[in-house]
Amino acid sequence: MPEIIKNGQIVDDAWQVLRLKTDQPPESIELPPDAALFPVSVWKTRKPELLARLETTGVWLASHETPEDIAEDIAKFRIIGIDFPKFSDGRGYSSARLLRERFRFKGEIRAIGDVLRDQLFLMKRCGIDAYAIRPGKDVHAALAGLRGFSETYQGDVDQPRPLFLRRYA
Protein backbone atom coordinates (compact mmCIF):
# COMPACT_ATOMS: atom_id res chain seq x y z
CA MET A 1 0.00 0.00 0.00
CA PRO A 2 1.36 3.45 -0.77
CA GLU A 3 2.72 5.48 2.12
CA ILE A 4 1.87 9.10 2.76
CA ILE A 5 2.60 11.57 5.52
CA LYS A 6 -0.43 12.32 7.65
CA ASN A 7 -0.56 14.24 10.90
CA GLY A 8 3.21 14.14 11.11
CA GLN A 9 3.56 10.38 10.60
CA ILE A 10 4.03 7.89 7.81
CA VAL A 11 0.87 5.88 7.25
CA ASP A 12 -0.37 3.38 4.69
CA ASP A 13 -3.05 4.92 2.61
CA ALA A 14 -5.39 3.47 0.00
CA TRP A 15 -7.02 6.61 -1.37
CA GLN A 16 -6.56 6.88 -5.10
CA VAL A 17 -6.47 10.09 -7.09
CA LEU A 18 -8.59 9.97 -10.22
CA ARG A 19 -7.21 12.14 -12.98
CA LEU A 20 -9.09 12.56 -16.24
CA LYS A 21 -7.29 12.34 -19.52
CA THR A 22 -7.92 15.31 -21.75
CA ASP A 23 -10.47 13.49 -23.92
CA GLN A 24 -12.27 11.74 -21.06
CA PRO A 25 -15.74 13.11 -20.41
CA PRO A 26 -16.59 13.24 -16.67
CA GLU A 27 -20.19 12.24 -17.44
CA SER A 28 -19.37 8.77 -18.69
CA ILE A 29 -16.18 7.77 -16.91
CA GLU A 30 -16.30 4.58 -14.89
CA LEU A 31 -16.11 5.37 -11.17
CA PRO A 32 -13.60 3.24 -9.27
CA PRO A 33 -15.30 1.34 -6.46
CA ASP A 34 -12.58 2.06 -3.89
CA ALA A 35 -11.86 5.24 -1.96
CA ALA A 36 -10.89 7.98 -4.40
CA LEU A 37 -10.39 11.70 -4.79
CA PHE A 38 -12.35 12.90 -7.80
CA PRO A 39 -11.84 15.91 -10.00
CA VAL A 40 -14.32 18.73 -9.40
CA SER A 41 -15.85 18.12 -12.84
CA VAL A 42 -16.65 14.50 -11.93
CA TRP A 43 -18.09 15.53 -8.58
CA LYS A 44 -20.34 18.08 -10.26
CA THR A 45 -21.61 15.81 -13.04
CA ARG A 46 -21.93 12.62 -10.98
CA LYS A 47 -23.15 14.04 -7.71
CA PRO A 48 -26.10 11.66 -7.07
CA GLU A 49 -23.89 8.57 -7.45
CA LEU A 50 -21.10 10.02 -5.33
CA LEU A 51 -23.42 11.27 -2.62
CA ALA A 52 -24.47 7.67 -2.12
CA ARG A 53 -20.85 6.69 -1.30
CA LEU A 54 -19.55 9.70 0.60
CA GLU A 55 -17.41 7.54 2.90
CA THR A 56 -15.15 6.68 -0.03
CA THR A 57 -15.45 9.97 -1.92
CA GLY A 58 -13.20 12.97 -1.82
CA VAL A 59 -12.59 15.75 -4.29
CA TRP A 60 -9.39 17.40 -5.43
CA LEU A 61 -8.87 20.97 -6.60
CA ALA A 62 -6.71 21.65 -9.60
CA SER A 63 -4.42 24.64 -9.22
CA HIS A 64 -6.74 26.87 -11.28
CA GLU A 65 -9.76 25.83 -9.22
CA THR A 66 -10.71 27.36 -5.91
CA PRO A 67 -12.68 26.37 -2.83
CA GLU A 68 -15.44 28.70 -4.04
CA ASP A 69 -16.04 26.21 -6.88
CA ILE A 70 -17.25 23.61 -4.38
CA ALA A 71 -18.40 26.03 -1.68
CA GLU A 72 -21.80 24.49 -0.91
CA ASP A 73 -20.37 20.96 -0.71
CA ILE A 74 -17.20 21.46 1.31
CA ALA A 75 -18.70 20.31 4.60
CA LYS A 76 -19.73 17.01 3.04
CA PHE A 77 -16.19 15.78 2.46
CA ARG A 78 -13.86 13.91 4.81
CA ILE A 79 -10.97 14.71 2.56
CA ILE A 80 -10.11 17.35 -0.03
CA GLY A 81 -7.02 17.16 -2.19
CA ILE A 82 -5.05 20.14 -3.49
CA ASP A 83 -3.02 19.52 -6.59
CA PHE A 84 0.42 21.01 -7.12
CA PRO A 85 1.08 20.41 -10.83
CA LYS A 86 4.54 21.85 -10.27
CA PHE A 87 5.94 22.45 -6.78
CA SER A 88 6.57 26.08 -7.68
CA ASP A 89 2.88 26.74 -8.48
CA GLY A 90 1.79 28.50 -5.29
CA ARG A 91 -1.96 28.75 -5.82
CA GLY A 92 -2.62 25.69 -3.68
CA TYR A 93 -1.36 27.52 -0.60
CA SER A 94 -4.15 30.08 -0.94
CA SER A 95 -6.72 27.34 -1.58
CA ALA A 96 -5.68 25.53 1.58
CA ARG A 97 -5.92 28.64 3.74
CA LEU A 98 -9.32 29.50 2.31
CA LEU A 99 -10.59 25.98 3.02
CA ARG A 100 -9.47 26.19 6.62
CA GLU A 101 -9.97 29.84 7.48
CA ARG A 102 -12.95 30.86 5.38
CA PHE A 103 -14.85 27.63 4.87
CA ARG A 104 -13.86 26.17 8.26
CA PHE A 105 -13.14 22.80 6.69
CA LYS A 106 -12.22 20.34 9.44
CA GLY A 107 -11.45 17.24 7.38
CA GLU A 108 -8.17 16.21 5.84
CA ILE A 109 -6.48 18.46 3.28
CA ARG A 110 -4.05 16.43 1.22
CA ALA A 111 -1.35 17.81 -1.03
CA ILE A 112 -1.10 15.78 -4.24
CA GLY A 113 1.04 16.12 -7.35
CA ASP A 114 4.57 17.54 -7.25
CA VAL A 115 4.75 17.40 -3.45
CA LEU A 116 8.30 17.68 -2.13
CA ARG A 117 10.02 17.70 1.22
CA ASP A 118 11.16 21.32 1.11
CA GLN A 119 7.64 22.74 0.81
CA LEU A 120 5.99 20.72 3.59
CA PHE A 121 6.58 23.26 6.34
CA LEU A 122 4.85 25.98 4.30
CA MET A 123 2.00 23.64 3.37
CA LYS A 124 1.47 22.68 6.99
CA ARG A 125 1.22 26.32 7.99
CA CYS A 126 -1.46 26.83 5.36
CA GLY A 127 -3.58 24.05 6.81
CA ILE A 128 -2.53 21.05 4.71
CA ASP A 129 -2.20 18.03 7.02
CA ALA A 130 -1.54 15.13 4.64
CA TYR A 131 1.11 14.89 1.96
CA ALA A 132 1.26 12.37 -0.86
CA ILE A 133 4.96 12.79 -1.63
CA ARG A 134 5.78 12.57 -5.33
CA PRO A 135 6.54 8.98 -6.38
CA GLY A 136 10.26 8.37 -6.61
CA LYS A 137 11.03 10.57 -3.59
CA ASP A 138 11.83 9.12 -0.18
CA VAL A 139 8.73 9.66 1.94
CA HIS A 140 10.60 8.84 5.16
CA ALA A 141 13.29 11.42 4.46
CA ALA A 142 10.56 13.90 3.54
CA LEU A 143 9.24 13.85 7.11
CA ALA A 144 12.15 16.14 8.01
CA GLY A 145 10.52 18.80 5.83
CA LEU A 146 7.83 19.34 8.45
CA ARG A 147 10.42 20.53 10.93
CA GLY A 148 11.55 23.79 9.46
CA PHE A 149 11.65 26.62 11.91
CA SER A 150 11.06 26.90 15.63
CA GLU A 151 9.29 30.26 15.23
CA THR A 152 7.45 32.08 12.47
CA TYR A 153 6.80 35.77 11.99
CA GLN A 154 3.31 35.94 10.54
CA GLY A 155 0.04 34.36 11.58
CA ASP A 156 -1.08 31.17 9.86
CA VAL A 157 -3.64 28.38 10.19
CA ASP A 158 -1.81 26.72 13.09
CA GLN A 159 -1.02 29.94 14.91
CA PRO A 160 -3.23 32.84 13.84
CA ARG A 161 -1.45 35.32 16.10
CA PRO A 162 1.60 36.92 14.44
CA LEU A 163 4.89 36.90 16.30
CA PHE A 164 4.67 40.59 17.16
CA LEU A 165 1.64 39.84 19.34
CA ARG A 166 3.33 36.96 21.14
CA ARG A 167 6.87 38.20 21.35
CA TYR A 168 6.51 40.64 24.20
CA ALA A 169 3.69 38.94 26.08
Partner: peptide, 15 residues
Protein backbone atom coordinates in the same frame (compact mmCIF):
# COMPACT_ATOMS: atom_id res chain seq x y z
CA UNK B 1 6.74 45.40 10.29
CA UNK B 2 6.50 44.40 6.63
CA UNK B 3 9.88 42.69 6.70
CA UNK B 4 8.68 40.40 9.46
CA UNK B 5 5.34 39.82 7.78
CA UNK B 6 6.88 38.98 4.42
CA UNK B 7 9.74 36.79 5.68
CA UNK B 8 8.97 33.15 4.78
CA UNK B 9 5.30 33.95 4.31
CA UNK B 10 3.75 30.49 3.98
CA UNK B 11 1.17 31.50 1.39
CA UNK B 12 3.30 33.81 -0.73
CA UNK B 13 6.58 31.97 -1.22
CA UNK B 14 5.66 30.74 -4.73
CA UNK B 15 3.99 33.73 -6.33
Amino acid sequence: IFRQWSTFHPEFTFL
